[in-house]
């Protein structure tokens, strides 16, 4: 329990659909078994259709998200355009590897749609930046085992946006209900070519 990844708790998942992607997180912030806040989102937007989910040690979630806010703003100033998900994924990877021997205790997830090709893109990382490219879904956080089970059971290829929303929501909600350190509601983003829908889900309050 003294693993830095499991002090504050939290869960995050991303999924691919037909010409769309979804990313969702829970809202709990805890200190071991004690819940401190039930409004601590773990997904951060970086440009029009690039999203980053961060689970792990809450202080590093905040630090790393702010670090990338800085880096992405600098990118935007230099390039005069938004960063794409693939480029951002490589930025995340190299930034995390900079701290190879004293890592940020986070498990990031990136989701987005490539502006040029219109293709959905998701990937996950370990805490030192090894990228896990996936065609289906990426999970992270203290409920990752549970999320693997629900996602593997519920996900299917080429889901339409509304069906993808239902799938990712059910996968997350049911997974966090079997994890004591995650839950207390959720944020779900459905990302389409030129539309992003953010929904707030009420989950079990225990």
């Amino acid at each position: 329990m003294s693993s830095p990844f499991a002090i504050n708790g939290g869960a995050c998942v991303a999924m691919v659909g037909k010409d769309c992607v979804a990313i969702a997180c829970d809202l709990r912030l805890g200190l071991q078994a004690l819940t401190v806040s039930n409004d601590f989102p773990k997904i951060f937007p970086f440009g029009s259709s690039t999203y980053l989910g961060l689970t792990g040690l809450a202080t590093d979630v905040a630090t790393v998200s702010e670090l990338f806010r800085f880096k992405v703003n600098m990118y935007r100033l230099r390039e005069e355009r938004d960063i794409g998900p693939q480029t951002f994924a490589n930025l995340v990877s190299s930034s995390l590897y900079e701290r190879r021997f004293g890592p940020w205790f986070v498990s990031p997830v990136v989701a987005g749609i490539n502006e040029k090709t219109g293709k959905p893109f998701i990937c996950g990382f370990d805490s030192i930046g090894c990228i896990d490219f996936a065609k289906d879904f990426i999970v992270s956080g203290t409920a990752s085992d549970q999320l693997f089970g629900t996602c593997e059971g519920l996900w299917e290829p080429d889901l339409e946006p509304e069906d993808l929303f239902e799938t990712i929501s059910q996968a997350l909600l049911n997974a966090v209900d079997r994890d004591a350190l995650s839950g207390w509601g959720a944020h779900v983003y459905i990302i389409e070519k030129d539309k992003v829908t953010k929904r707030l889900l009420k989950g079990r309050q225990d």
Binding site: N8, L31, L34, V36, S37, D39, F40, A58, A62
Partner: peptide
């Protein structure tokens, strides 16, 4: 704002530190 020694920060409507939390 609730901030602990690890620098976890959260905006909250009410908060406590130490045993007072329990």
């Amino acid at each position: 704002y609730w901030i602990d020694y690890l620098a976890s920060s959260a905006k909250v409507p009410y908060a406590a530190h130490g045993y007072a939390q329990y």
